[in-house]
């Protein structure tokens, strides 16, 4: 039952040394998802130039896995175009972290939701239609 027992060295690295932490006052898109009742709240911010995500930052309240997945998704998204970024799935975040304990996979889903929400916020500000969420595969 110990959550840490299932944490990979990659997760621990991103927990102890998270990338891209902090606020982004000039963000072009902000996504805030989660709920403290379930344990995690993630806020993801993107800086976009010509539909390319030039920078991403996050702030997270949550467990080790929540912090690590936030950190990893900001790394994955930097330099991607909007079209590429919307295709990033929670599974890619899990794989990049070399796996998550089953009870913590929901953190990667939250990271994906935060990214999508930030992208839609960017699109909305530009007066463009939001991107529909593709149907997620049934079981992680």
């Amino acid at each position: 039952m110990n959550p840490q027992a299932g944490y990979s060295p990659e997760v621990m690295d991103h927990f102890y040394h998270p990338r891209n932490v902090g606020a982004m006052p000039e963000a072009d898109g902000v996504g805030k998802v989660g709920n403290p009742v379930c344990g995690d709240v993630m806020q993801l911010m993107i800086k976009v130039n010509d539909d390319v995500i030039e920078d991403a930052k996050f702030q997270t309240f949550g467990c080790g896995a929540a912090i690590a997945t936030s950190s990893m998704i900001t790394e994955l998204v930097k330099g991607k175009t909007i079209d590429e970024a919307v295709k990033i799935s929670n599974r890619q975040v899990v794989d990049a972290l070399k796996g998550l304990p089953p009870a913590k996979v929901h953190c990667s889903v939250l990271a994906e939701d935060a990214l999508r929400s930030a992208i839609n916020d960017y699109l909305q500000r530009a007066g463009r239609p939001p991107i529909e969420k593709p149907p997620r595969e049934k079981k992680e």
Partner: peptide
């Protein structure tokens, strides 16, 4: 306040 316990646990563990 403002932080989740597991992170503190892991930080102290290190």
């Amino acid at each position: 306040e403002f932080v989740e316990g597991e992170g503190i646990l892991l930080g102290l563990d290190s």
